[in-house]
Amino acid sequence: MDILHTCLNVADADRSVEWYTENLDFEESWGFETPDGETVNRYVADGNGVELQLSDTEGETPSDEGDLWDHLAVKVEDVDAAFEEIDHHGVVEEPGDQPAAGARTAFVKDPDGHVIELIEPLED
C-alpha cells in the first residue's frame, strides 16, 4: 500500500492552493468537483509527489474543533477485496466508482475513528 494524499477541509480552495504554492513551493496538480457541484477538490503536490487534497464544500467552514482534517488516502490493488479483509472499526462509505476522480473508493475507520480512504485507480 502507498499513501497517496491527506485531505484537509478548507473554507476557500483557491486561497488554500495559493497559500501552499506561494509559501511552501507546492505545485497544483489536479482537481475535480463532486457531481452535485457542492464540493471542489483541488490537489497540491510537494517535490516528491506527495499530495494534499484541499476540499472546499459549499456552506461548510472548518473549525478548530476537529473537522479541519478529513481523511488519509491509501492506494490498494483491489478496493473491494481490501474493504472485505481489513479489520475496520466502522464503514463510512462502501466501495463505489468515482468517475470524476478516476478511481474506485471506499472509506473505513481505524480503531481511533480516523477515516481512511481506500483507492483503486480506474482503468482508462
Score class of each variant (00 low, 15 high):
R104S: 04
P35W: 09
Y20N: 01
P35C: 03
R42S: 02
D64L: 12
V91M: 15
R15N: 10
D87S: 15
N9Y: 01
I3P: 02
V50R: 12
N23Y: 10
G66F: 07
H5R: 00
E58W: 09
F26N: 01
I3D: 02
G102R: 01
N48L: 11
H5Y: 11
L24N: 07
G37W: 05
D97N: 14
N23H: 14
D124L: 08
T6H: 09
E65G: 05
D25L: 13
G59A: 07
E58C: 04
Q53P: 00
N48A: 14
D78R: 01
P121G: 07
G66R: 05
P121K: 08
H89V: 11
A45W: 07
Q53N: 15
L122Y: 05
V115C: 09
N9E: 06
N23I: 07
F32C: 03
A100P: 01
G47P: 07
L68V: 04
G113P: 08
S29V: 10
A100R: 14
N41I: 10
L118M: 12
W19S: 08
D124N: 10
I116N: 12
R15D: 10
D112G: 12
D12E: 06
E123M: 09
N23W: 10
D110Y: 03
V44I: 13
D97V: 11
E22L: 09
N41A: 02
A103Y: 02
T61I: 12
P99L: 08
I86L: 15
L52M: 10
K109L: 06
D70N: 11
D14N: 14
D78C: 01
V79Y: 00
I119E: 05
E33Q: 13
C7T: 15
G31P: 01
A13G: 08
P62D: 08
T61G: 03
V10A: 04
M1D: 02
E93F: 09
T6P: 00
I119R: 04
G31I: 05
T6A: 08
E60K: 14
A45Y: 02
T34R: 03
E123T: 12
C7D: 06
H88S: 14
T34C: 08
D124R: 09
D36Y: 07
V115G: 06
E58P: 00
V79N: 00
S63Y: 06
H89G: 12
V44G: 03
K75E: 11
G37C: 02
V17C: 11
A73F: 01
L72A: 09
G31A: 03
S29L: 07
I3L: 12
V10T: 03
A103H: 03
T34D: 04
D25P: 01
D110Q: 04
F107E: 00
D2T: 07
G47N: 13
R15H: 13
E33H: 11
N41F: 13
G47T: 13
V92M: 14
E60P: 00
D2P: 00
E33L: 12
P99N: 05
E60R: 14
D14G: 13
H88Y: 14
I116K: 10
V91P: 14
G49E: 11
C7H: 05
M1S: 12
K109N: 10
E38Y: 02
T34F: 09
